[in-house]
Deep mutational scan, measured.
Amino acid sequence: DDWEIHFNNITIRLHGVSEEQIEELKELIKNGAHEEELRKWAEEVNR
């Protein structure tokens, strides 16, 4: 699925990401992940 997530003036566009991966991302954000951590997560997902 395609997703677009907005938070802290950042837009993250995701393509072909599962519901499970979105839940992981929500947890990262909820736990106060920094932009660098989110980038690493996105790189892993996009492999």
Rank of each mutant, 00 (worst) to 15 (best):
N9G: 15
F7G: 01
F7Y: 09
Q21H: 11
L28I: 05
R39F: 14
D1T: 15
K40G: 04
E36P: 03
E35S: 07
L28C: 01
E36V: 06
I29H: 02
V45I: 12
D1L: 15
V45Y: 11
E24A: 09
H15M: 06
K26R: 13
L25A: 03
D2V: 14
L28Y: 03
L25Y: 06
E35R: 04
N8A: 11
S18E: 02
I5R: 04
G16N: 15
Q21K: 13
E35I: 14
N46P: 04
N31S: 12
L25M: 05
E4T: 12
K30M: 12
Q21G: 04
V17Y: 06
E4R: 04
N8W: 01
G16R: 11
H6S: 09
E36W: 02
E27N: 13
E35H: 06
H34D: 14
E20W: 10
I5Q: 04
I10S: 06
H15I: 12
I22C: 07
W3G: 03
F7M: 06
N31E: 05
K40I: 06
W3Y: 13
I10H: 09
L38V: 07
H15W: 06
G32P: 01
T11H: 08
L38A: 00
F7H: 05
D2Q: 11
R39D: 09
D1Y: 15
E24H: 12
E27K: 12
K26Y: 15
E44M: 08
H15Q: 08
Q21W: 07
R13L: 05
G32L: 03
E4S: 05
N46V: 12
E4D: 10
R39C: 15
K30D: 04
A42N: 02
E36A: 11
E37T: 08
E37I: 09
A33P: 02
R47I: 15
R13G: 08
T11P: 00
W41H: 06
H15S: 10
A33V: 12
T11S: 04
W41T: 04
I12Q: 07
E35W: 13
L14N: 01
V17K: 03
D1F: 15
T11C: 05
I29N: 00
G32T: 01
L25E: 00
V17E: 01
E37D: 14
N31F: 04
E27F: 07
H34W: 08
I12W: 00
K30H: 08
I12L: 04
D2H: 15
E44T: 07
E19H: 12
L28S: 01
T11I: 13
N31V: 05
G32D: 03
I29Y: 03
E19N: 10
N8I: 07
H6M: 10
H6G: 03
G32E: 03
K40Q: 12
K26N: 08
T11E: 05
T11K: 09
N31G: 09
L28F: 02
